[in-house]
Design a binder for these strands. Sequence first.
DNA 1: GGTAAGATCCGCT
DNA 2: GCGGATCTTACCT
Length: 211
Amino acid sequence: MANDDAGTPLPRTFYDRPAPEVAPDLLGRTLRCTLPEGTVELRITEVEAYTGPDDPASHAYRGRTARNAVMFGPPGHAYVYFTYGMHFCVNMVCGPALHPGGVLLRAGQVTGGADLAGKRRSSSRREHDLAQGPARLAVALGIDRAQDGEDVVAGPVLQLFTGTPPAPELIRSGPRTGVATGADTPWRFWIDGDPTVSPYRAHVPRRRRTG
DNA sequence: GGTAAGATCCGCT
DNA sequence: GCGGATCTTACCT
C-alpha cells in the first residue's frame, strides 16, 4: 500500500498558483486515497486546467453556485462533481484568491492497492485502464461526492506527495478533452508515451433522444 | 415548472 | 466506430 517512492506531502503553497501553472507540475505526483475499505495510490499521468470567469469551459465561469462552491474556497482542496448522470470527476482547487479554478485529474498509473482498485473497476481488463480517464480514476480511488471539499494537504482521506515528476521534455500539452468551448486552449497536459493516458476526444454535442 | 446539454464510459457492431 | 445509459445543473419561460 504505502509506497516508499511517494516522497513528502505537497504544501498548501503548491496549489496557490493559477491552475494552468499547477497542472503540469502535478504530473508524476503521487495521489493517495485512504478509506475504511483500504488505500489506493496512483501516479498522476494526465491533467487539465480550468480557471474562472475568463474560461467558458470552466464550471466557475458563471460564478459561484452550490455545486462549484469549493472552487471558490482555499486552494489545496478536492472539488468533486457529478456528471452525465453517473460519473464523478476529481479536481484539485488552485489559487482561488486571484484565479478561481482547478485542475481535473484525468488519468493515473495505479502504484498501490491495485487489488482494491481492480475490485472497484470490475469492468477493467488491463492494469493500464484502471484509472485511464477522469471517471475511471475516481472509481479506482473510491472517490464520490463525500470527498467534495476534502483537504488534500492536511488529509486524512486524500493526500498528494511529491512522487517522481517526469523529465520536462516528456511533458506534452494540447487541447482539453470533450469541452464545448475554449477547445483551442492547450491546457491538457500529459506524460508522453505513458500507457495510462486517456485517448483524446473532441467535444461532440449529444443529440436529444427522439421520442 | 420545463428542458437541453453535459470536463464520460461501456458494450456491441 | 457508434449509440445508449442516467440525473444534475443551469437557463428559459
